[in-house]
């Protein structure tokens, strides 16, 4: 039973009266104290915190940063807090310590929506598209906060992901796994973000599709967008990464360029299977 009586449904799952899928985004409420800032493009600086004000800490003094136009990858064993660390930079975690800064601006206390407006794009791992809407409508919804004409952005995304142009009037839910990920990335790119956060973009797709997705991600980075990515496929991800973070139990275990980490015998031993 939860402590909040309003969230106690007694396990009722009667689909005739209630529709599953209530929003689960819990907005972070800030650290309640002022932050010092320094220059960095996106940096989650010495973050300590967990879900909810009273939840146990999941991150412990964890720092994640990405430079302009570069790809940073977070890897680590299961339950290391990889996704949590990324969500923390996006305002979906209650931080007790540390700060998050975007292009020098302290955004620690902003809501996720405000961070989108500030120039961040986020692609969740699951349910990251509007399945019942067409590909084009998905992109339009991505641009919801834009008041200007975004047709050229759509055109750019179609250039980047030509298959989407072909299927633009098809419901996104009918596409294959790899295509859905492209829609998800495309949707996040519609706000023309300066940083793109990807939570395991290659989860559940075939190796060939994975390679193609990585190629696209590199292409996105070349346009000057910084990319912060959580990946299960550590080896492939580190190969394309400018910077890699290995997290263990919510702490920074190893940090370095992708190549360094791949070469590091300790990292190879423990995380890359030798």
């Amino acid at each position: 039973m939860t402590n909040n009586p309003y969230q106690d449904d007694r396990g009722n799952k009667d689909a005739t009266i209630t529709k599953p899928g209530t929003g689960t985004v819990v907005e972070a409420t800030g650290t309640d104290h002022a932050m010092s800032t320094e220059n960095a493009f996106l940096i989650g600086d010495s973050m300590t915190g967990g879900y909810g004000k009273s939840g146990p800490d999941i991150l412990h003094d964890c720092t994640i940063a990405v430079n302009k136009g570069e790809i940073a990858v977070i890897v680590g064993p299961n339950g290391a807090g990889k996704s949590t660390a990324m969500k923390a930079t996006f305002g979906m975690l209650h931080l007790r310590q540390g700060s998050v800064r975007l292009d020098g601006r302290d955004i620690t206390d902003l809501t996720p929506q405000a961070r989108v407006a500030a120039g961040m794009g986020f692609v969740p791992q699951t349910s990251n598209i509007f399945t019942s809407m067409t590909v084009e409508e998905n992109l339009e919804m991505g641009a919801f906060i834009r008041k200007d004409d975004f047709r050229d952005t759509i055109a750019q995304i179609y250039d980047l992901f030509p298959i989407l142009k072909e299927k633009r009037n098809q419901a996104a839910g009918e596409l294959s796994g790899g295509q859905r990920q492209q829609v998800a990335v495309g949707r996040a790119l519609m706000t023309q973000p300066k940083v793109l956060l990807l939570d395991e973009p290659t989860a559940g797709v075939s190796p060939i599709v994975m390679d193609e997705l990585f190629d696209r991600i590199i292409e996105v980075a070349r346009t000057g967008i910084s990319i912060l990515m959580v990946e299960q496929n550590a080896r492939q991800a580190l190969e394309i990464a400018d910077k890699g973070y290995v997290l263990v139990t919510g702490r920074n275990a190893h940090t370095g360029t992708g190549k360094d980490l791949l070469a590091d015998p300790e990292v190879r031993q423990s995380f890359l299977g030798g």
Binding site: G23, P112, P124, S127, N128, I129, F130, M141
Partner: peptide, 10 residues
């Protein structure tokens, strides 16, 4: 369709 994603889309 997707409350969370709609929120993240502004």
């Amino acid at each position: 369709d997707n409350e969370d994603l709609a929120l993240l889309s502004g």
